[in-house]
């Protein structure tokens, strides 16, 4: 019940999912962002895994609750359940493996089917440290992103390049949308329930600021 007890206080709780083909580096992006760790020999993710980190935007604390999903097709039925309530997604491919980029449209369609209509999606070309093995030209991915109104970035979970930026940008964009929406409606929080776990995508009332009131979630 007391979500705020041991956690640092936060103003917003955003659910973000990591999707993309197997072995593109989703789990390492997550561990780099949440624990500043890279595991050269991580095992494949089975089902889903979970981690969190809080960042600050405009003096507001945003807590990202990130779900890392298994990449293999067979797990779709299980993992798509985790898209529900997600307000952001990092759609990851491997710049050294063109097949993983070709699958991006499929993943995008899947997100549109199962996640919130207004989900913020960032296209992430990971493993940018593998320059000599590059198979996906930056321009091509950028053009794809532009065509589908996705922001785009290349990252390396191994050497840290742009990992922070990828998450920061996604979370900031969600925050902008949510705070402007909140201004429009001038009213309390819009809340989405994701698999029973309350995901607050709007500011809490001033009197409950700094504490998310789970009981008010629908």
């Amino acid at each position: 019940m007391a979500q705020g007890n041991e956690d640092p206080v936060y103003h917003y709780l955003f659910k973000v999912v990591l999707v993309g083909d197997a072995s593109v580096g989703k789990s390492n992006l997550l561990s780099r962002f949440t624990r500043d760790e890279f595991n050269i020999d991580s095992r494949s993710t089975i089902g889903v895994e979970f981690a969190t980190r809080s960042i600050e935007v405009d003096n507001k604390i945003i807590k990202a609750q990130i779900w890392d999903t298994a990449g293999q097709e067979r797990y779709r039925a299980i993992t798509s359940a985790y898209y529900r309530g997600a307000v952001g997604a990092l759609l990851v491919y491997d710049i050294s493996n063109y097949a993983t980029f070709e699958k991006v449209s499929k993943w995008l369609a899947e997100l549109k089917d199962h996640a919130d209509q207004n989900i913020v999606v960032m296209l992430v070309g990971n493993k940018s440290d593998l320059r000599h093995l590059r198979a996906v030209p930056t321009e091509e991915a950028m053009a794809f992103g532009a065509k589908h109104s996705l922001s785009f970035i290349e990252t390396s979970a191994l050497d840290c390049t742009n990992v922070e930026k990828a998450f920061q940008k996604t979370l900031t964009e969600i925050y902008r949308i949510v705070s402007s929406r909140a201004l429009e409606t001038e009213n309390s929080a819009k809340k989405v329930v994701a698999g029973g776990q309350a995901i607050v995508v709007g500011p809490t009332n001033t009197d409950t600021e700094n504490k998310v009131d789970k009981s008010r979630c629908c």
Partner: peptide, 20 residues
Amino acid sequence: AENVQFLQFAFRWMNCLLMR
């Protein structure tokens, strides 16, 4: 009460027979 779903952790227990 904590909204934990069994699917969130037990999926792997069944899929890999606790080998993880």
